[in-house]
Simulated assay, not measured.
Amino acid sequence: MPDRPPLAGRTALLLRSADRAGPTLAELAARGAATVLCPLIDVELPEDTTQFDDGVRRLLDGGFDWLLLTSRSTVQALCRRAAELRQAPAGAPDALDVPPATRVAVVGEATAAAAADAGLRVDFRPVHDHSARGMLAEWPQQDRPSAGTTVFMPQADLAAPTLADGLRAWGAEARVATAYCTVDAPADPARRLAAPGTGEPQPDLGPAELAAAGGVPDAVQAVLLTSPSIVRRYLALAGDTPAGIDGIAIGDSTAAEMRRHGWEPAAVAVLPTPAGLADAWEHAVRHASPPGS
């Protein structure tokens, strides 16, 4: 008989925003696992988009050599502001009319897919390390932005300066603008960035219900943590690091935030994707110490 899949019959707590949860829910279901969805954070446009809008206008006018994208939410924010600035009719396609001479770099698979959906051609993305560090390390030296090169970097309000500092060290002019803000769920409906044209799964719990459960709903064996801000919000609601369940981090920065709070990850995903998260959880299950050991 075939071996029982490692995640079959297990349940994970997923804390990412509802519009981004679907692929992870599907990945875990395909491996026989159940999921309790409780979005803790959301994303929305900044209250003041003046700086961002200036960059978007310059981008659409061909004023940058490179557009650097580090998340799907960034692509969504660019499409939304571009449409509003050019007063596109309601229901117009979410596409970015970026001049062909502007090259595009992305951080990983999900961002590349969002860029492609927006009609962009991706010229560079790291193969091995889908992070700011990976982009800087894997960018071919002969092709990287250098002195005299202009780069537009719309990003989250919480983004670290790693990438901008690296580009400036190469001599490039890195124009950074806040494209979206990470907030406690739910976001302001008027500014919320949701995946256009796609349905969202309904949450199983709200933050207050999660807090009432001490951060660990019944039947949950693992918590899937997909950003440092989610780690902070979860621990604020839970009151302490949870005992007896696996904390699975989507990447190094999330794992580092867990450790800052005295919580050692059971596993860290090699790639920040739904499959990467599921693989990491499987690794933790396979390498768990048997009862009584």
Rank of each mutant, 00 (worst) to 15 (best):
99 P>V: 02
121 R>I: 01
140 P>S: 04
170 W>T: 01
94 D>K: 13
134 G>L: 04
105 A>G: 15
116 A>P: 05
85 L>S: 08
126 P>I: 04
102 T>D: 04
153 M>L: 12
110 A>P: 09
154 P>W: 14
152 F>S: 09
108 G>T: 05
122 V>Q: 09
135 M>S: 12
91 G>T: 07
103 R>S: 14
167 L>S: 12
101 A>M: 02
166 G>F: 03
117 D>I: 00
78 L>K: 14
159 A>D: 01
106 V>L: 06
121 R>N: 05
109 E>P: 02
131 S>L: 01
77 A>P: 11
110 A>D: 10
152 F>H: 11
153 M>R: 03
143 D>N: 08
119 G>S: 14
78 L>E: 14
172 A>K: 05
167 L>P: 10
108 G>C: 06
131 S>E: 03
82 A>R: 05
168 R>W: 07
147 A>E: 07
165 D>W: 06
101 A>D: 05
79 C>M: 07
97 D>P: 12
70 T>H: 04
89 P>H: 11
148 G>L: 04
172 A>Y: 03
154 P>C: 11
169 A>F: 11
92 A>N: 04
162 T>I: 03
159 A>L: 02
122 V>T: 12
125 R>F: 06
80 R>W: 13
127 V>Y: 12
79 C>Y: 00
137 A>K: 04
135 M>R: 08
76 Q>M: 14
129 D>L: 14
152 F>K: 01
82 A>C: 00
165 D>C: 11
79 C>W: 00
139 W>V: 02
129 D>C: 03
153 M>I: 08
82 A>W: 06
76 Q>I: 07
129 D>Y: 12
77 A>W: 14
119 G>K: 02
144 R>E: 15
109 E>L: 10
134 G>N: 13
151 V>C: 02
132 A>W: 00
86 R>G: 00
80 R>D: 02
88 A>Q: 14
88 A>E: 09
150 T>M: 04
164 A>L: 04
169 A>K: 13
153 M>K: 03
150 T>W: 02
152 F>E: 10
123 D>S: 14
127 V>S: 13
140 P>Y: 00
110 A>C: 07
150 T>I: 00
83 A>H: 06
98 V>W: 00
169 A>L: 06
